[in-house]
Amino acid sequence: MSHFDDLTKLPQTRFSWRFQKDEFAVWKALHSTLLAMGYVLWPYSTSFKMDDEVSRNAKHVFPNGYLLATPLRGIDGPVFTVEALRFWDTTPFNCIARTPDGHDAVIRVMATGDDGREQLNIWRDLATAPHALLSSNHTLPLWREIDIGNITLGVFPRVAECMDIAYSRGSQNSVGDILDMIMQALEGLAFIHSLRIAHRDAFKSNFVVQFFPESLKAGTVPVYKPRVYLIDFEAAIRFPEGCPPCERVCTGLPLAGSLLEAELYTRKMIPEMQNNEPYDPFKLDVWQLGQSFVDFNSTLEPVEEVLNCMAEMDPAERLTAGEALSRLRAYVESVPPKSLLIPPVVYQL
């Protein structure tokens, strides 16, 4: 019996895959297929977690350059060990596995049949050479693709942290740390926008960070700034070369190909999306990122003005990624780095 026989149990569209009740069931069905290719899935229950033997020895984590920790955490400390050996951000779309060459990677569904092929091509162009070699491109690199029947999976490096928790869960990141992450995120958006690509799901949860500097705990400005990566292009759109800027517009909800999908869309929306009016998807990206930080207060008026303009409900007042980046960069360059070594105010929404 072929190890491909159980693929008949797999979802046939990205939508049905995303809303599986048991997020691990699809990966159980793929377990033997991936194992035959040399990919060993991490054990899973409520999250993907390495077994106890590995958990007692962090040396089993093969360094990949994307998952780091500050010395403050301690190599032998429980916080470092838990974060290095557990993968919390599980969805039916992804799993974590050890690759044939010993790296820990995230395996993600990129396309099923014809569904998602346009986004897959966008992902390929951004996440592989030559674009992946540019410093201003913050798209997480795509290590390789796996084709199983009509399903294409992407293998991506596992990154340490999600920007979604940059100032929560007891993190000690300073305002300066967080501003650097926001500016890198804007640089990443400005880069893809220059290629006529809009992400359309650019909330902070879709940016991952090499590590958290936690400058408040260190009490010093970090020498090395962690790199921020943009992930999850499943809602991305690319306009053809030569398309006039006035025609680079969208209508409706990202991924809303049916009434059922629209009902299950839970992200925050600009008014134009709800009214089915044409909107600028590039400014949508900036709005989504800005909206992600409504619970964050830098306590610095120039910074707050930029963040507010990013999240402006009036489309005429919304900033582009390049404009927002230029304004934040100008402010950061005008003040001593030590002055940004302050805690943010975090609102409970």
Rank of each mutant, 00 (worst) to 15 (best):
M1V: 11
L10I: 10
D22M: 08
E23C: 06
K28E: 11
K28Y: 09
L30V: 10
S32Y: 06
L34Y: 04
L35Y: 03
A36G: 13
S47L: 15
K49P: 04
E53S: 12
V54Q: 09
S55I: 01
A58L: 12
H60M: 13
F62L: 11
P63W: 05
Y66H: 10
L67E: 06
L68G: 00
T70L: 00
G74F: 07
G77D: 11
A84R: 05
W88K: 14
T90F: 05
T91Y: 01
T91R: 01
I96A: 15
I96E: 11
R98Y: 09
R98W: 09
T99L: 10
D101Y: 08
G102E: 09
G102A: 06
H103D: 10
A105C: 14
V106D: 04
R108K: 15
V109C: 15
D115V: 00
G116E: 05
R117V: 13
I122V: 15
D125I: 02
L126Y: 02
L126T: 01
A127V: 05
A129I: 08
L134T: 10
S135N: 09
N137G: 09
T139Q: 02
L140P: 03
W143C: 07
R144Y: 13
E145S: 10
I146A: 07
G149M: 03
T152N: 10
R158P: 00
M163P: 00
M163H: 06
D164M: 02
A166G: 04
Y167S: 05
R169Y: 06
S171D: 00
S171M: 02
N173W: 05
I178E: 00
I178Q: 02
I182E: 04
A185P: 00
G188Y: 08
A190Q: 14
L195M: 13
I197A: 00
H199I: 00
H199N: 02
A202G: 02
F203A: 10
Q210G: 06
Q210D: 14
E214G: 02
A218K: 03
A218Q: 07
G219Q: 07
V223E: 15
Y224F: 12
P226W: 07
V228P: 00
I231T: 03
I231M: 01
F233K: 00
A235C: 13
I237M: 01
F239C: 05
F239P: 06
C246E: 15
E247S: 11
L260H: 11
E263K: 13
L264E: 13
M269K: 15
N275E: 14
N276T: 11
P278K: 12
Y279H: 14
P281Y: 03
K283G: 12
V294T: 15
F296T: 04
T299M: 13
V303I: 15
E304I: 08
E305F: 09
N308S: 14
N308M: 11
E312K: 03
M313W: 12
M313T: 12
M313S: 11
V332W: 05
L341D: 07
P343Q: 07
V345N: 07
